[in-house]
Each structure stands twice: as structure tokens, then as C-alpha cells.
């Protein structure tokens, strides 16, 4: 019998209290129907709602309260950086909902793995065994922050599924390419498709997460539907949205913002109040939705997740490897 000790992130996260949110119609609906995971599979949820709907996150009854108060949903879904759909914060909500289809969605595992595969994203969630909720801090490189209740699963589960070969040292994530639907890709404001990468030990860290929902609902398009990366100890741009391939590689993959401006955005992108961006300080951050005058707080090392991730970077010069 394993005695399970609560993970650190769980004490401040993991659990749903209805009072966090204004409303959770989808979860309520499923609950009313008495539809669990099995039922959801029968219903072919993707055809009913968006991709990845119908997988209610399983709350963890051990930890009923969260220390982190989620940012208002209207800001989480209305104040986004998703340059594929425009460079202004208010663009993605409009531009990503003009016919861009994220259902059905296929995600591919490839590269140095024993089990290369292509999955429909719903099939993948079923294979993984459903989703859970985690409330994480989110810190943008532009010095603002939110608290977001994500639904999804540990990235480590995906790594296990792919079964990497010993020579695999990195994960390379690639987002979608669809200039017809994505105005930013038509304009060519960045090099597309958007790519990101993690060291494999970072990917295996308990915090690394693949999100398929927020606020108990499937990810809205502007938040990276249907599946996106969440690494809460890193700046937001690491959290690649709308992933289509995960490739396991032996060498460090490129990441989009590093290609655009290597002196400003590194590969690691760990939140670090002591290492400034060349144009602004990272010592503190503006709290989104924090109102007029009271919305600033000091930025924490690794965004407050030092205990979980500091060991990954022992001996690494964080000033050079920003």
C-alpha cells in the first residue's frame, strides 16, 4: 500500500470548488446526465461540443481549498497572446473564432521513440485515463500574470506513452499551420508554424502539463484549443498552443521567439526576477484584473515553483541560459 503524500502544487491547486467560477455549464450538464468518462466516450463528445469536451476533470477530494484565486474568466479568455491570430491582446478572441476548426484534431508522437503514433486528441485523453484540474500561476514575459485553472494531464504521461529511446534528450513541439484560418500566419508576423522545446527531464517534471481545458470547459480557440503546453515555472511563450506534433530529438530544438530575437528570448525562459529582459525589468509583475492601483506584485523565482523545479537547473548559469 502506497501512502500518498500530497504534492506541493496540489495543496494550492488540483481542486475544484464551484465558487471559483461564475458558471460551469458543461460540467453541470454532464453531471446531470450522470455521464462519466465511459459515458462521454459513448457520446462521442467531440461531435457534441468542441474537441476534448466530455472529459470532466476529476476533482481531488483530499484538497478542498485552493490558495490561488483564479483570474476572472473574461480576462483569461479575452486577453491573449496568440500571434497566429493577431498581435493585440484582444485579437485572438475575435480572429480565432472566425471559422478556424480545432475538431477533429490529430496529434502525432514521433522521433526517437519506441511507439510513434497519431492520435485523435479525444482518443489520446481516453488512453491517458482522463483529465484532472490544476490551478497554476501564469507569468508572461511581458511582466504580467494570471492564475489559471487548467484541465488536462501530466506531460510525463505522454512521454511514457511514446516510450522514448535512450538517445532522446529533448521534446520539440510544433503548432498548427493554416494560413487560411490564421490571419497572423497570412501576415507572417512570426516564423510559422510556432515551435517550442523542452529538455526531456523538464518534460518529466510533475508540473509540466498538457491542458485541454480551462474553468472546467474545453479550451476556447484563443487559448490554444484543443491541446496546449503548460509549464508554469516558465514564461508564457514556452506554453505552445494547439499542438500537432511532439517530436523526441537528440539535439536542442529551436523555439520561435528565440529565432525572432535571441538576445531577448532564450530556450529556457525560466521565470527569474533577477534576470531582466533587455527592455524591461522582470522583478515584479502586473496582476491581470487587479484593478487600478493595487495590481502589482514581486515576481517569484521560477514563478513560485522553485521547490519543484530548481533541481533541474543545478550548475546551470541562469543569466546566460535565460
Amino acid at each position: 500500500m502506497l501512502i500518498r503524500t500530497p504534492k506541493d502544487w496540489e495543496t494550492s491547486a488540483a481542486v475544484t470548488t464551484e465558487s471559483h467560477y461564475h458558471a460551469r455549464p458543461r460540467r453541470e450538464f454532464l453531471r446531470t446526465l450522470g455521464v462519466g468518462l465511459a459515458g462521454a466516450a459513448l457520446l462521442r463528445p467531440g461531435s457534441l461540443f468542441a474537441a476534448t469536451a466530455g472529459f470532466p476533470p476529476k476533482p481531488n477530494p483530499l484538497y478542498p481549498a485552493s490558495a490561488l484565486k483564479p483570474t476572472a474568466e473574461e480576462y483569461v479568455t479575452g486577453y491573449n497572446n496568440f500571434y497566429e491570430f493577431g498581435t493585440d491582446k484582444e485579437d485572438p478572441k475575435v480572429q480565432a473564432n472566425k471559422g478556424w476548426k480545432t475538431d477533429p484534431w490529430t496529434i502525432e508522437l514521433k522521433g526517437l521513440v519506441n511507439h510513434p503514433a497519431k492520435f485523435d486528441v479525444n482518443e489520446l485523453i481516453k488512453k491517458i485515463g482522463g483529465i484532472e484540474e490544476r490551478i497554476y500561476r501564469f507569468r508572461c514575459v511581458e511582466a504580467w500574470s494570471m492564475v489559471i485553472p487548467w484541465d488536462g494531464f501530466a506531460l510525463a504521461k505522454l512521454v511514457a506513452l511514446a516510450d522514448p529511446k535512450p538517445e532522446a534528450k529533448y521534446l520539440k513541439f510544433t503548432s498548427f499551420q493554416d494560413p487560411k484560418s490564421a490571419i497572423g500566419q497570412r501576415e507572417g508576423n512570426l516564423d510559422y508554424p510556432y515551435v517550442e522545446g523542452l529538455r526531456i527531464d523538464e518534460a518529466m517534471n510533475e508540473l509540466a502539463f498538457l491542458a485541454t481545458g480551462i474553468f472546467g470547459k474545453p479550451l476556447p480557440n484563443q487559448n490554444g484549443s484543443p491541446i496546449r503546453l503548460v509549464t508554469p515555472w516558465k514564461y508564457g511563450f514556452k506554453n505552445i498552443k494547439s499542438i500537432v506534433t511532439v517530436e523526441f530529438t537528440a539535439t536542442q530544438p529551436k523555439n520561435t521567439w528565440n529565432i525572432m530575437a535571441a538576445n531577448e528570448y532564450g530556450f529556457y525562459a525560466n521565470v527569474n526576477p533577477k534576470v531582466d529582459h533587455p527592455r524591461w525589468s522582470q522583478a515584479s509583475e502586473r496582476i491581470i484584473g487587479g484593478g487600478f492601483l493595487s495590481g502589482r506584485q514581486d515576481t517569484l523565482m521560477f514563478n513560485g515553483y522553485e521547490k519543484q523545479v530548481a533541481a533541474l537547473y543545478q550548475g546551470l548559469d541562469l543569466k546566460k541560459n535565460y
Binding site: K89, E90, R286, G295
Partner: peptide, 11 residues
């Protein structure tokens, strides 16, 4: 109603 305005009004 502008989300960007409410999200970070002073900015």
C-alpha cells in the same frame, strides 16, 4: 466593454 482595459487599465 474592453477586456484589455479591464485586464490592465493603467497599461
Amino acid at each position: 466593454h474592453r477586456p484589455a482595459l479591464g485586464a490592465d487599465p493603467l497599461k
